[in-house]
């Protein structure tokens, strides 16, 4: 049922993996539903099992707020890691553009489990740090590409 290759569970034993799965609950999202809103309290960390999740931010287009795609996540990818990082508020809006299934891991249950199992906590935290670092590098590159274009336009 569950994809063992999920990035959040890299380096975990089968037992550690199963123990974390037991903390979570499966959520089926109909097409077009909102998983979480920008600025909402981040109570869950999610792993996409099936389908897609669109992560968006609002942008003013012709005087209207429109949700603009920032990133899209598919099976095996983790979203909502703001649940583990203070101030525990989602920094993006997440919606399902098609029927999607996610594993929802409650923040408090994870914290309690990590406190009781520090080795697993360290491994998962390491995986979350890798995700955050990856996203930072990705957006640094995207930002620099946009800067380059702006400089070219200015100097043209």
């Amino acid at each position: 049922m569950f994809d063992q290759r999920a990035e959040l569970f890299n380096g975990l034993s089968a037992q550690q993996h199963d123990e974390i799965l037991d903390l979570g609950a499966l959520m089926a999202l109909p097409s077009g539903s909102v998983l979480f809103d920008l600025g909402a309290r981040a109570e869950h960390l999610y792993v996409v099992l099936r389908g897609r999740i669109r992560l968006t931010l609002p942008m003013q287009i012709r005087g209207r707020d429109e949700d603009v795609l920032v990133e899209e996540s598919g099976p095996g990818e983790t979203i909502g890691w703001s649940a583990l990082i203070p101030p525990c508020r989602y920094t993006l809006k997440a919606t399902a553009p098609l029927e999607t299934e996610v594993l929802a891991l409650p923040r408090e249950a994870l914290r309690s489990y990590f406190a009781a199992n520090p080795a697993t906590g360290a491994a998962v935290t390491q995986n979350v740090a890798t995700l955050i670092g990856r996203r930072l590098q990705l957006f640094q590159a995207m930002w620099l590409r946009e800067m380059q274009r702006m400089v070219e336009l200015r100097c043209a």
Binding site: I61, V68, L69, Q137, L138, A141, R145, E146
Partner: peptide
């Protein structure tokens, strides 16, 4: 139309994402 513009932005973000992934 806004819908067309949003699709263009979507496409742009995906392409930029892919280009940044290639760079990484």
């Amino acid at each position: 139309p806004i819908e067309a513009l949003l699709l263009q932005i979507d496409s742009h973000v995906r392409l930029e994402h892919a280009a940044a992934e290639s760079f990484l």
